[in-house]
Simulated assay, not measured.
Amino acid sequence: MTSSRITDWDDAYANGAHIKDADSFAPKWEAAAAAYRDARVASERARLDVSYGSSAREVFDLFLPDGDMRGIVVFVHGGYWRAFDKSSWSHLAAGANARGLAVVMPSYTLCPQAQITEITGQVARAINQAAGMLSGPVYLAGHSAGGHLVSRMICATSALSRGVADRVEQVLSISGVHDLRPLMRTAMNRDLRLDFDEATRESPVLHYPRDGVRHHAWVGAEERPEFIRQSELIANIWSGCGADTALTIEPGKHHFDVIDSLADPKSAMLDALLGED
């Protein structure tokens, strides 16, 4: 039997070190996001920096479809709860906008200025406010740390209001981290400041999902084994808790390019987010 025991947790959760030309991705994201954002502002189909709280990063951008609106997608960015903001991902709204959905992209306070419990609360407030402004079903998507955050929104202990939680039709966690306990063994925990109590409290796999929830875990086949395991884990455990779960391991995709398909209105990933797969 081959052992799969982890001995180097930093390497297990390192993405860029295992992706060719990793440093080129962030500038490409930022350029594509700026171009899309500028175009939507010019066509008066965007509202930027909508405040949902008192701190500087408690703001979201809203991108409206050109025609009638059939619902709301909220996309929560990743970066290990320590990096990025809403402005790097505007282009990912293109697919959902083309299919008649408004897209909300929140920023949130980063670690170590905030702990993950606080970030979870901020994301819930952003979704509650956006849902109060817009009608229709709500679809949640997030990448990496964002996958954790949107999964946390549909736990039985979610901070979403009851009315908003009842409107959530589908959650898509892309390369999500659903069990935070291994991160306590990484160097990044100097910023995350996870202890056992918070790691267990904020791990979706250690909570019951809300009744009637639909959750799709999506991960690239070329990702680090831990990200594949984390996606398999939530699909397995939440299925046993009565949730409607699905798992996609997409061939040829790694942690940085797996999200690209959100920008394509005809993609299988967008079908999965909208529950039309």
Score class of each variant (00 low, 15 high):
258 V>D: 14
249 I>Y: 01
181 R>M: 14
76 V>L: 09
79 G>M: 07
132 G>V: 05
193 R>Y: 03
200 T>P: 09
250 E>F: 00
263 A>D: 09
239 S>E: 15
225 P>K: 02
8 D>R: 14
94 A>V: 06
156 A>I: 05
192 L>A: 01
164 V>L: 08
104 V>C: 13
246 A>I: 00
6 I>Y: 03
108 Y>H: 10
107 S>D: 12
34 A>E: 10
218 W>N: 01
168 V>A: 09
37 R>I: 04
157 T>R: 12
274 L>C: 08
269 M>G: 01
187 A>I: 07
222 E>L: 15
163 G>L: 12
31 A>Q: 15
23 D>N: 14
265 P>Q: 08
277 D>F: 05
73 V>Y: 03
48 L>S: 07
214 R>A: 13
110 L>G: 09
196 F>G: 09
165 A>K: 06
129 Q>M: 15
114 A>C: 04
261 S>C: 10
266 K>W: 13
31 A>C: 04
160 L>W: 05
26 A>F: 13
135 S>P: 02
134 L>T: 05
159 A>Q: 13
167 R>E: 00
234 I>G: 07
45 R>Y: 02
144 S>D: 10
254 H>N: 15
31 A>L: 14
53 G>Y: 03
206 L>S: 02
67 G>Q: 01
20 K>D: 15
247 L>M: 10
235 A>Q: 14
245 T>K: 06
251 P>W: 02
263 A>G: 06
65 P>Q: 11
264 D>S: 08
43 S>R: 10
143 H>R: 04
194 L>S: 09
32 A>D: 14
65 P>D: 06
261 S>G: 07
65 P>I: 05
165 A>C: 11
59 V>A: 06
104 V>R: 07
43 S>Q: 12
146 G>A: 07
103 V>A: 08
229 R>Q: 13
254 H>C: 14
29 W>H: 08
168 V>F: 09
12 A>G: 04
260 D>H: 12
249 I>M: 01
89 W>L: 00
230 Q>N: 01
250 E>C: 02
11 D>R: 14
